[in-house]
Amino acid sequence: MQCAEDHQTLLVVVQPVGIVPEESFFKIYKRISTVSQINVRDSQRVLYIRYRHHYPPESNEWGDFQTHRKVVGLITITDCSSAKDWPQTFEKFHIQKEIYGSTLYDSRLFVFGLQEDIAEQSRTDVAFYPNYDECEDVEKRIEDFIESLFIVLESKRLDRATDKSGDKIPLLCVPFEKKDFVGLDTDSRVHLKILFPFIVGF
């Protein structure tokens, strides 16, 4: 289901953590996915977002070769009605992040059901709501989340623009090719010439 327009979008995965009623999950997912583009503050740029609620981790492995398949953001939704369940719930959130950890720039956890004593804990990556109906600022939090992705991407772009380490060009390869380069110095022009003698300029 890929299309040419995917190349101008950032891929964000939205998934439940623990047991979340399907109807409730898709109710929030629908609201999240309405934030499909934002105008970045203090910039002329527009960010386009592509959301997926199911995205196999093996697809993310293609991110180095096809950037539009790289998961850069993760939003998780969970039910947690008891304070004693909160530590376990938060641990599940971290486990979910590790699945896409190699490419992830930022993440958010939306918690539904906890009482105010827990909800008062200040975290930028966690939002607490009493239920699925009383969550008026979901869209605003998503906009802030997307802007945080932009900040990370922009800082990486500026770092690359000022990098004076030389003219090394990373060797792009698809996931199943990586095993062929184990133990090789893929940055070395000598190895590249041996592997790809037809490349002009080596």
Rank of each mutant, 00 (worst) to 15 (best):
N131T: 06
T124Q: 08
K97I: 02
N39Q: 14
P57M: 08
E91D: 11
Y48N: 15
R123M: 09
G73T: 03
Y55E: 06
R50L: 07
S59W: 10
Q121M: 10
S59R: 15
C80D: 05
G101H: 05
I49K: 06
P57H: 09
I38S: 03
V72Q: 09
P130N: 09
E116Q: 14
I75H: 01
W62N: 00
S107K: 01
S107V: 00
F90N: 07
R52P: 00
I77N: 02
H94K: 15
D79M: 10
V46Q: 14
Y105D: 11
H68N: 14
A83T: 12
K70V: 05
E120S: 15
S82D: 12
D64E: 12
R45S: 09
H54L: 12
W62V: 00
N131G: 08
G73N: 04
S81W: 06
R69H: 09
I38F: 10
R45W: 07
A83E: 13
Q44I: 05
T78A: 11
R69S: 04
A127C: 11
D64G: 15
Q66A: 14
H54E: 12
L104F: 00
C80S: 11
L47C: 07
V46M: 11
I99W: 04
E120C: 13
R41W: 06
I99N: 03
D42T: 07
Q37C: 13
L114R: 03
V72T: 10
W62I: 03
K92P: 00
F110C: 01
I95D: 10
D42C: 07
Y51M: 04
S122R: 15
I75Q: 02
Q44A: 10
S122I: 07
T67W: 05
Q121E: 10
S81D: 09
E91K: 15
V46E: 06
E61P: 02
F90Q: 08
E91T: 11
T76R: 00
A83C: 09
D85C: 04
H54N: 15
I38Y: 08
T124Y: 06
R45V: 10
T76P: 02
E116N: 14
A119D: 06
Q88I: 07
A83N: 13
R50P: 03
Y100F: 15
P87Q: 05
F128H: 05
R52S: 10
I77G: 01
G101A: 11
R52I: 04
A119S: 15
G73I: 03
H94W: 08
G63Q: 01
I77Q: 00
I38W: 10
D106M: 00
W86Q: 09
L104T: 02
F128Y: 13
E120R: 15
Q88P: 02
P87E: 05
I49C: 07
P56V: 08
A127S: 12
D64F: 12
Q96G: 01
A127E: 03
V72G: 01
Y105G: 08
K84Y: 14
Y100S: 04
L104C: 01
I95P: 01
P130K: 10
K92H: 10
P57G: 08
H53S: 15
E91W: 12
W62A: 03
T67F: 06
F90W: 07
P130Y: 06
A119W: 02
Q96L: 04
V111W: 00
I118P: 04
D64P: 04
Y105K: 13
I77W: 02
Q115G: 14
I49A: 07
H68S: 12
R50Y: 09
F128W: 01
R69N: 08
V111T: 05
W62K: 04
Q37R: 15
E120D: 13
Q88M: 09
Y48Q: 14
A127H: 06
